[in-house]
Nucleic acid binder design. Sequence first.
DNA 1: CATGATGCTCAAAGCGCTTTGGAAGTCGGG
DNA 2: CCCGACTTCCAAAGCGCTTTGAGCATCATG
Lengths: 341, 341
Amino acid sequence: MTLKELSELLGLSPTTVSRALNGYPEVSEATRKRVTAAAREYGYAPNTRARSLATGRAMAIGHVIPISAKHEMVNPVFADFIAGAGEVYSRNGYDMLLSVVPDEDEVDAYRGFATKGNVDGIILHAPTLNDPRIELLNTLGLPFVVHGRSSDTDGPYAWVDVNNTRAFQRATDFLLDLGHRRIALVNGLEHMDFAIRRRAGYEGALAARGIAPDPALMFAGEMTETHGHDITRALLAGPTPPSAILVSSMITAIGVRRGMEEMGLRMGRDISLITHDDELSYFRNGADIPVYTSTRSSVRDAGRKAAGMLIDIIERRDTPREILLEADLTLGQSTGPAVTV
Amino acid sequence: MTLKELSELLGLSPTTVSRALNGYPEVSEATRKRVTAAAREYGYAPNTRARSLATGRAMAIGHVIPISAKHEMVNPVFADFIAGAGEVYSRNGYDMLLSVVPDEDEVDAYRGFATKGNVDGIILHAPTLNDPRIELLNTLGLPFVVHGRSSDTDGPYAWVDVNNTRAFQRATDFLLDLGHRRIALVNGLEHMDFAIRRRAGYEGALAARGIAPDPALMFAGEMTETHGHDITRALLAGPTPPSAILVSSMITAIGVRRGMEEMGLRMGRDISLITHDDELSYFRNGADIPVYTSTRSSVRDAGRKAAGMLIDIIERRDTPREILLEADLTLGQSTGPAVTV
DNA sequence: CATGATGCTCAAAGCGCTTTGGAAGTCGGG
DNA sequence: CCCGACTTCCAAAGCGCTTTGAGCATCATG
């Protein structure tokens, strides 16, 4: 069913039908009613490709997911972010275009979005320190919003981020208040901007109490369960194990906990743990009482906010271009006063 | 940069340029070289919308992710499936279109795909018993592939599935061989087809040894960590706890394990656990020696297979329309002989 | 009654591409 | 030297929609 067919059926011109459907004022209320009723009856919906060719708007937002041959890994945070963003897209009539590419082709993927004109905007994921993709997107001239920030990148760009520095500084402070002095940090890969900031928060809190950060207590790696487990085993088997561990992801924290328990330590009593919790929908941190004490910020909500901002930019609405979300510090059962081992 | 501009630059007609770029034989090799070089130089890529309007092919595959208000939950398996499928799409020049909708709008989303013509095919996720969406898609006439199957649905449809029945039957058999008699089943929601089949495998294995399934040992629910934990606590606190637990997902198994350990039981020694493992990239089952004994099947690989099949169907290639993957039964540290409690 | 304003509708152009149906140009065979 | 067969290229139509610019009634106003 095309617009032309529908209009012939109604005895109207395509123009009028189009205007009726798109809410233009030049068409009488009676005609509009008649048209929309017919459209519903015959199941007519304008062809997206034709429409966007005519309007110049793709009505779609692009996301690029790089797949690395080295660490074959899809960020678990991604699924929840997508869900949040996707909600907002559908509500506003946008589609979401996902491009899964080998990471060496990532730049081409962005270029492709721009030249092939199949999206109106882009969300940039997982920015690194001084991320070159930001400049690329700026030169491509396609609206975009970054989920996270990129330190050392100058020039303005739109972003939605959690206050990672503050969150980890508060978490560290809290552990220090409980009497912990040897606090380990199990961080994400430290070319990632969020990891850099978390580390800065951690080190800042230590420094404020005159404690020099111990490199032997600081780790960076992929945020998998296994990684958390292995590091914890190694740490606890060492000569001077920490009394508390600060972890960058719930998933890693699960592994850390497993390591602790395998070493015969009871989490929350013998050793403390604070994790960052992205509030992944399928990985709730306990029911009523959280299992883990955590710095908490909903990644799904970040997705919604980023999507909303991007649509605002595309549609030239005047709204803030920077959103900094504060993480809550939520008390769970995984922390307690430092015990002298 | 449009085709017309490029052709003027080259002193050729748009027709010739288009044909050169699309590999038609009517254009000389010399011209083709000249055209492709110019295209590269000026960064020309055909506008997707215009092209697909002209060809009638959207060069995109649609996925619908329903978001439920009740159980706000994005299937974690989804991310990995998407990654696998997405790989194949990009390699074949297809885009992936994700539609995140409230689940009451799911039917509309499929209808929308069909009438708005923005996809050439659809992947159907998480089929239930006698899933009405299959008939819907059949009447819509859009090529589709189901990830999973739908029992009680007659009429052929294309699918990629794991042999869930066989996997759980084997796992149960294995536990029985180890002397276990009271084996609990922590399953996914049992309107889901995969859960029905897993239960059938479990019950079949028990029946083969003359053991009547005990309803008090069978559970169905969302496959979250918390759910596994809570069920396990309840089970182990009961009068006649099981000596082994069969779990439908790694994530749930993590919770089950947590419950076991909280109750003072050592997994693999005091109590056994077998889980199904979808081989999620961020949730490896141990490094060299698997932590959990598991029925194992890569969901990412299923994604690749489903995507490949769908593209074959769209492009009218003649390939099998049904793929049944066998899950491995991988031995880990979570199982051992039954101990009399 | 003439005039302009207003409300409703339409014809036609154009978005950027593919593709059909030729039309020139080239070449070898009769 | 002519003719058919290729080879190489092009003009123009068409994909399904939006949107510009007008046209035709109808209505209130001076």
